[in-house]
Nucleic acid binder design. Structure first.
Lengths: 302, 302
DNA sequence: CTAAAATTGCAATGTTCTTTGCAAGTTAGA
DNA sequence: TCTAACTTGCAAAGAACATTGCAATTTTAG
């Protein structure tokens, strides 16, 4: 029952867990055994986040009922409601400790979603092996063409990647319009090309098919996905794994976009002159076509 | 109940969660729905660590019993036993790299990009007024149609938003294909509709035009942008300001996607029954059209 | 094409966990 | 010292959850 030094890493980081919990205290504070329960919640966040009321009660030397009542005294419906909040705080303190983003007393779906994306990005930032992105960027830079296969909502990631890569001066195309377009694109692909398959959560049949077909034709294949699946891993030279867990039913695209962004940034660094020229040309065209909005009064250049 | 087996420092393997899980696989691997369950465990470690078997089953599109059986197939007594292990692994994977992350060289462009996105998201999380997202979500829920105008690379944000909102059961359409399509879309818009203009960095002329036109026709207009611009602010009922500064020349879409994600999450919470039914219907269609990849031996008919 | 084997969903069963009514015990104030 | 308000534990009621038997369906092997 030791485990007193619960989580050593928590030393420096401003502890949103603790602060938050203290803010919930009723004006009068908590007395008696309720205070003992609170003590346990504060000192053993890990157990508090996972354990049953029973377990916590035992730890505080208290009856189970007291745990429930303490939760209610803190303004929650019961122990499960309190625990859910504790969990969210605790996990945030683990992963995003240094950033310590705290939204006081919220809990709307949208803010939960944001917080989770923040966590995902923190994990990504920690885990991602940048050399993989470097490899992919160099492959794209050397390729005759790059084809990005992405379906469903992941199409957004593919489009963003393709768009910016083109802006950076490389022939990259996203195929997102379904099987017919995909088939046509595959017909034109061959040695010297690169294919990037993007798929989260559920793999689309045609994405896997395309990856395998490309591989067998000597195309360099890379994959961006949320969990290494044998199907893609065997077809791809490198697999980038990205957290995509969302708050609601939908997988989150945030971390995927961040990787796309990082990849393009890396790509732009491969040949700065080429990228610079390409951007300049694009800007000239935007001006020529009058695409951009001119601010009314501000006398601004460009 | 010592719980000493947790092993907080597993520094070497950043991804102990996934590796560990894969090692538990029976020789034959997992087939059919069991593979789908495994997929969810791998891709959604957080939910897997906390959720009930019921929740996981729903996520995998599977009966509850299958979750239990999968746990047993992996060599555990049942779901709780597996979950306990998953939790320990997941938590250590969260905290393990934290120390290492500090030292990690901030060298390559890609990692700088990631770090910057992380900062942006932290700022967003702190600054964003969630009531604005709530307002927009409710407007979308009540609208006859919602049209999202987004051009350039921001089209990705618009598409992601539209895609998921449709999945959630609402008639939302992204207009991203240029001025001609935009003009057509504007012709059909009117009172009772909602328009969301998405534009970062540089405003597209046509986006501003569309917003103003919509406004004058009694459409509720909202904007998602990176800096309050008078042109959009005057046309929009509410403006969501999102950090979009990128490492390279390109504006970052990461924070924008995160907002889109948060918005859809909020939207899905407006009428859970409607969203639930919509998702179920979509899943049925995916299955019917055979879009999803099937894991096991390739004995599948078309 | 047929039979055996395996897979999966449904629904009943049994378990664990949370909450609450009640009574005993404690504290504070008159 | 006595009483009223409050706290706490016990135990039963109630809810959520995991597991398993059974039947229907699909897959595999002959």
């Amino acid at each position: 029952m030791t485990e007193g030094a619960v989580v050593p890493e928590e030393l420096g980081s401003a502890d949103s867990y603790e602060d938050w919990l203290r803010e919930r205290l009723p004006v009068r504070g908590l007395r008696g055994k309720a205070a003992a329960v609170l003590e346990v919640l504060l000192s053993q966040p890990r157990r508090a986040s996972f354990g049953s009321a029973q377990e916590l009660a035992q730890l505080a030397g208290v009856n189970v009922a007291t745990v429930t009542r303490t939760a209610q005294a803190l303004g929650f419906a019961g122990w499960p409601a309190l625990q859910q909040e504790l969990r969210a705080r605790y996990l945030s303190s683990l992963s995003a400790g240094q950033v310590a983003a705290e939204h006081r007393g919220t809990g709307s779906p949208s803010s939960r979603s944001l917080r989770r994306d923040l966590d995902s990005l923190a994990v990504l930032n920690r885990r991602l092996d940048e050399s993989v992105l470097l490899t992919i960027a160099e492959a794209m830079a050397a390729a005759r063409h790059t084809v990005i296969v992405a379906d469903g909502s992941y199409a957004a990631v593919g489009l963003a990647l393709a768009h910016n890569a083109r802006l950076a001066g490389y022939p990259v195309r996203a195929v997102t319009a379904g099987d017919a377009e995909l088939a046509n694109a595959m017909a034109a692909i061959g040695e010297g090309d690169v294919l990037i398959a993007i798929s989260f959560w559920r793999l689309y049949q045609s994405t896997v098919l395309a990856a395998n077909e490309a591989r067998s034709r000597g195309v360099r294949v890379f994959a961006l996905t949320d969990a290494a699946s044998p199907a893609l891993a065997s077809a791809a030279e490198q697999v980038v794994i990205v957290p995509a867990e969302g708050e609601a039913f939908f997988p989150s695209l945030t971390a995927g976009i961040a990787v796309a962004q990082a990849l393009v940034t890396q790509l732009a660094a491969v040949d700065p002159a080429r990228t610079g020229a390409s951007i300049e040309a694009a800007e000239a065209m935007w001006a020529k076509f009058g695409l951009l909005h001119r601010r009314p009064t501000a006398g601004d250049p460009s």
